[in-house]
Write a protein that binds this DNA or RNA. Structure first.
Lengths: 188, 188
DNA sequence: AACTCTAAAAACTTTTATAGTTTCTTATGA
DNA sequence: TCATAAGAAACTATAAAAGTTTTTAGAGTT
């Protein structure tokens, strides 16, 4: 079955998001899945390969999502909410160790990730906010790009497993709270 | 002169904040300061030692700051502003690679950092917000701890050198924007 | 101008981590 | 019962980096 490949990408994505590229070993990924390294190397020829696969899938998924929302949700604030809810968990790689790792180790991959972040994420989400500004729904004394980064940073902080574990609140509560603060903060 | 020790701690703190513990080499630190490894080992017996020293100094500094603000600024929102402005740059280690690194490599140090974060940072800053809630200045439908974490996460995202570099805005602008959004978002 | 002390530069050794490979074992199913 | 597939685990090769030693250079001293 080919869908083992997807499970490998799942596991790798999780690990990479939390620990970066270097710190994650092939043994880690294998043992997460209860498979052997042998099987791992059956499906991917190297660790680098896995990183590329993770990136590919993530970017495809996010790209599709953004296109879909663009068509289906006209109100910028509603669109923002929707996208954030779905994209958030996938962008935990932004500004993480993973990026600093691959900057040195797989510079080609790094460049593609950077450009995707810049062009797709910031430009797109920032664009939504700007639309909100034009429509008079969002205050115009804030920089939309900074706002997006701030929001993503807030989410990133919360979804860290370590952080989540030692607190009593659920991730949904947290998302909710942050959205509340943020929406209230940016709206006119 | 003993103040070379402080310069070493400075350099290490910077590196550790950005890259974590593992990724930073003794050569990195030495070359940042234009000194030799020999001199490094003259002042600290190991890399671990330096990490402890960084932690010690940081926690002392922050502790002093918090105590001082407690005495001198009665209004919770003003106090929050003041503390955030000064503490922010020092807590970039929270939720960073440094923490995940030392969790494995120097567990004792990790525990002390975690407990400091929990007891001093979140409890203290969260306490300010709760005071604000009691005084009716801050809305009570948000979890103060989540709010603090969100805020710190937002800052953390912004102050990353990589992120700062490729954007046109200054760090002061960014702080300003975030504070605006956040204060607007949490106030009644 | 030779002398000394200090610290940088750089070469070196040793340890450790881990990517990738191989071998051995076990289970499944034809 | 044999063949294939996959896990477990041992193994190898290599690279990175901690820590040490040696060499070089310069600033101040007699």
């Amino acid at each position: 079955m080919n869908h083992i490949k997807n499970r490998i990408i799942d596991a790798a994505e999780k690990r990479f998001s939390q620990y970066g590229f270097r710190r994650v070993t092939m043994d880690d990924i294998a043992s997460d899945l209860g498979i052997s390294k042998k099987t791992l190397y059956l499906h991917f020829k190297s660790k680098e390969d896995i990183a590329w696969a993770v990136k590919e899938r993530m970017h495809k998924d996010i790209g599709r999502l953004l296109q879909k929302a663009k068509k289906e949700i006209p109100d910028p604030i509603e669109r923002f909410k929707k996208i954030i809810a779905e994209v958030t968990s996938r962008v935990s790689i932004i500004g993480s160790t993973f990026m600093t790792d691959i900057k040195k180790d797989i510079p080609d991959l790094w460049r593609e990730c950077e450009s995707f972040r810049e062009k797709e994420i910031y430009k797109y989400i920032g664009g939504i906010l700007e639309e909100g500004v034009r429509k008079g729904k969002i205050r115009k004394d804030i920089d939309t790009k900074i706002a997006v980064m701030a929001y993503l940073g807030a989410i990133k902080m919360i979804i860290q497993p370590d952080i989540l574990m030692e607190n009593q609140f659920s991730i949904e509560d947290a998302f909710d709270n942050i959205l509340k603060i943020f929406l209230e903060g940016i709206q006119k």
